[in-house]
Nucleic acid binder design. Structure first.
Length: 419
RNA sequence: GGAGAGAUGGCUGAGCGGUUGAAAGCACCGGUCUUGAAAACCGGCAAAGGGGCAACUCUUUCCUGGGUUCGAAUCCCAGUCUCUCCGCCA
């Protein structure tokens, strides 16, 4: 959420930047509603002052007048609240403004590669996809999941299930021990305020699994990412500057409707309604976002380095970035079967965009309240890491060699094979 | 599910119809003292929004939403959440 004062003061810049994000927002209407709102506020406040003065005087002869004023206040308030709600509605649907070094572009085709890492292995046999491998091993079962649950779900079985768990634990351990994150085991259901805070609501309601609960209390959603819960831990708080930075890591299932991606990645477990992800969230002083983004991205890639998986780092263009991001790096891992890099992590700085929605602040050194900076990144998507290990570590007989760092998590098993 | 208790500033916690935006303590900031720090002492310190170049000023806010009243943190109604006890279940 943007500060209306900023929009007022830098109208042209905002218009231009919003356009680069490829969304249709009428900023002129925002300005109009804003000025209308302020006029009504002034009108209302002058009546309120009058009423307050009367009640201070305790002069009985003025009491009737005071009642009349009350009526006026009510009617003006109604108008004002109406205008304000309209304004807030538009305001809450405006995406974050990209930073200067973000490449301008309509979509992912304008993303820029920064660097490739690792060595892509050359195979002397025909590589199989992860779902072929998983099927042969009888350890990935998509049909069974269709029966019990529906499309875009999967059963991971036996040694592959163990590998998935090993990957999760390995990642958590690295982030805790080496990267300075605090482990959190959070709720995976979020209320509407939390969903608003990180930007899933109101605009992306259709991507979310909403729970149908028989109670009059607020709306509840399955989290699409632990970012929602971890970031909202500081909602409505005024933190002490000494407490910053906060760094959290959590392993959670994530739930996404994947509405609008019909026909995309229908085979295999690249795109599922449910998947595990190790998520990193940082809450920092506003001015430290960019340093933290580099640090976070390095935390994510350190996992791939240790697992010896080839990847590349790219910076997303203005049209491909998420709603709340001001700058995003994607980490893409090499998938031999597709002969290309696929996203395995996305690290974003949101600046104070989410903080403003959440009212998450800290007292700076001048004792003033300032909005915190928030960042989130995958460290990494567990399912996709499993896939990339299967494909990159496959052998000609269809077995999968277990990367060394994971073996301690698997009773020192070296290879997953049919027998 | 049944029965109680509660929700006040960054935190703890008073107030229970009229200068109460709110005592006190902690935390925090500034100062005195000190070689430095601590302690002690003095002073400051809620948030959001509006107006003003500014000094400053106005409005709102004591869980939320209604109501009573000239006037509500304080009274009434509804709701939400938290805690304790009992039951039930992991």
């Amino acid at each position: 959420m943007h500060n209306i004062k900023d929009i007022r003061a830098n109208f042209d810049k905002f218009t231009k930047k919003i356009k680069s994000r490829n969304v249709d927002i009428n900023l002129g209407e925002v300005l109009e509603l804003d000025s209308k709102n302020r006029t009504l506020i002034q009108e209302k406040e002058s009546f309120e002052k009058e009423k307050k003065d009367i009640s201070k005087k305790k002069d009985k002869s003025l009491f009737e007048k005071s009642k009349k004023i009350s009526e006026k206040i009510v009617s003006i308030s109604k108008k004002q609240v109406d205008v304000k709600n309209k304004l807030e509605n538009i305001l809450s649907s405006i995406p974050n403004i990209p930073l200067e070094d973000v490449p301008v572009g309509l979509d992912e085709s304008q993303n820029k590669e920064i660097k490739k890492f690792g060595v892509v292995r050359s195979f002397d046999f025909k590589v199989k996809s992860h779902y072929e491998l998983g099927d042969n091993l009888k350890m990935l079962d998509f049909e069974l999941a269709t029966k019990t649950s529906g499309a875009r779900f999967v059963f991971v079985k036996d040694k592959l299930a163990m590998l998935e768990r090993a990957i999760s634990n390995f990642m958590l351990d690295i982030h805790i021990k080496e990267n300075g994150y605090t482990e959190i085991s959070p709720p995976i259901i979020a209320n509407d305020l939390s969903m608003f805070g990180t930007g899933q609501l109101p605009k992306f309601e259709n991507d979310q699994f909403e729970l149908k609960i028989d109670e009059s209390s607020g709306r509840k959603f399955l989290i699409p990412t632990a970012e929602v819960i971890l970031t909202n831990m500081v909602r409505d708080q005024i933190l002490n500057i000494k407490d910053l930075p906060l760094r959290f890591v959590a392993l959670t299932p994530c739930f996404r409707k994947e509405a609008g991606s019909y026909g995309k990645d229908t085979k295999g477990m690249i795109r599922q309604h449910q998947f595990y992800k190790v998520e990193l969230v940082s809450v920092v002083e506003n001015s430290k976002c960019l340093d933290e983004l580099e640090r976070m991205t390095n935390s994510a890639t350190s996992i791939l380095d240790k697992l010896n998986l080839p990847y590349r780092k790219i910076i997303l263009s203005t049209g491909d970035m998420g709603f709340s991001a001001e700058k995003t790096y994607d980490i893409e891992v090499w998938l031999p079967s597709e002969n290309k890099y696929r996203e395995i992590s996305s690290c974003s700085s949101c600046g104070s965009f989410q903080a403003r929605r959440m009212k998450a602040r800290y007292k700076n050194n001048n004792n003033e309240n300032e909005f915190v900076g928030t960042l989130n990144g995958s460290g990494l998507a567990v399912g996709r890491t499993l896939i990339s290990i299967m494909e990159n570590y496959q052998n000609s007989d269809g077995s999968i060699t277990i990367p060394e760092p994971l073996r301690p998590y698997m009773n020192n098993l070296e290879k997953i094979s049919n027998n």
